[in-house]
Design a protein around this nucleic acid. Structure first.
Length: 267
DNA sequence: ATGGTTGCTTAGCAA
């Protein structure tokens, strides 16, 4: 039996970017939208409540926004050129997590999630346990809400570098929260529920990173990791045509410590 | 083990 081909309007450009405070990054966010014009942009680490999100400014550029903000920490959003539908904040009923780390919407027939996975602090800490539990909770949530054959883009700051080729200096990052085998295994279990790393489908080469620590000259030394991802279910992943990381966005004055990741889906 | 930097909030936490 042939897999059902969902009607997806393509080309579709899906981007994800941890902005590390949407207020501190407003000018850069607007410049990025004008420059790249993604159809969908998933944001993480807004670090502000909904009321302080620059809604008018993004609206002027032709974007709609579904926002799940939080004071000081976390906060996620989905911006889209078409109005997002079926917006859901958190992982649904019974999700008691007070941290705003996940928002979902339907855009142009595609289910989209913007997720800010927990960093994990130090391996063995309470934050580490929270990270692994959160990831297992996401896996269970995805399994419980999965619709067979549905085009679905799971995007965000996963705070996991899936493989050593995603790390400039794997030895120095070995067994840290971003590279630990338990975190990689937790991500693999999420992927096993029907997702593929769309970026790697078309960009297998090493040397591609999305985050560089502000400290220790991370960016000047290119001590980077690829921890921001666009995962997609088969109907979408099969259409992956191009992927890039906007490394230039990490340059200049007052950058986020993350660069935007963009994936183009096309028939 | 600590350091180094940035953002939010104003001393300390989170990343």
């Amino acid at each position: 039996m042939r897999a059902r081909r969902e009607a997806i309007a393509v080309p579709l450009v899906v981007a994800t970017w941890n902005v590390n405070s949407v207020r501190a990054r407003e000018a850069r966010l607007l410049a990025f939208l004008e420059r790249s014009r993604p159809d969908v942009l998933c944001l993480q680490e807004l670090k502000t409540e909904d009321a302080a999100f620059p809604l008018e400014a993004v609206t002027r550029l032709g974007y709609h926004a579904a926002v799940y903000g939080q004071k000081t920490y976390n906060g996620v959003a989905i911006l889209a050129r078409e109005a997002p539908a079926d917006v859901k904040r958190g992982m649904g009923d019974g999700d008691a997590d007070p941290q705003a780390r996940l928002i979902e919407a339907r855009v142009r027939g595609v289910r989209v999630i913007s997720a800010y996975f927990p960093n994990g602090g130090e391996v063995g800490s309470e934050k580490w346990a929270y990270k692994l539990a959160w990831m297992e909770g996401l896996r269970a949530h995805l399994a419980a809400t999965a619709v067979p054959g549905e085009p679905f883009a799971l995007c965000g700051d996963f705070n996991v570098a899936p493989e050593d080729r995603d790390v400039a200096n794997p030895e120095s990052w070995k067994d840290t929260v971003l590279c630990h085998p338990d975190a990689r295994e937790a991500l693999a279990r999420i992927a096993a529920s029907g997702f593929e790393d769309a970026f790697r489908r078309v960009r297998p080469e090493p040397g591609l990173y999305s985050w560089w620590d502000y400290r220790m000259l991370g960016f000047p030394k290119n001590d980077g990791l690829r921890i921001d991802h666009v995962y997609a279910t088969a109907p979408l992943a099969a259409r992956t045509a191009a992927a890039e990381i906007d490394r230039n966005e990490r340059k200049g004055k007052q950058p986020s410590d993350h660069a935007p990741v963009l994936v183009t889906f096309q028939d």
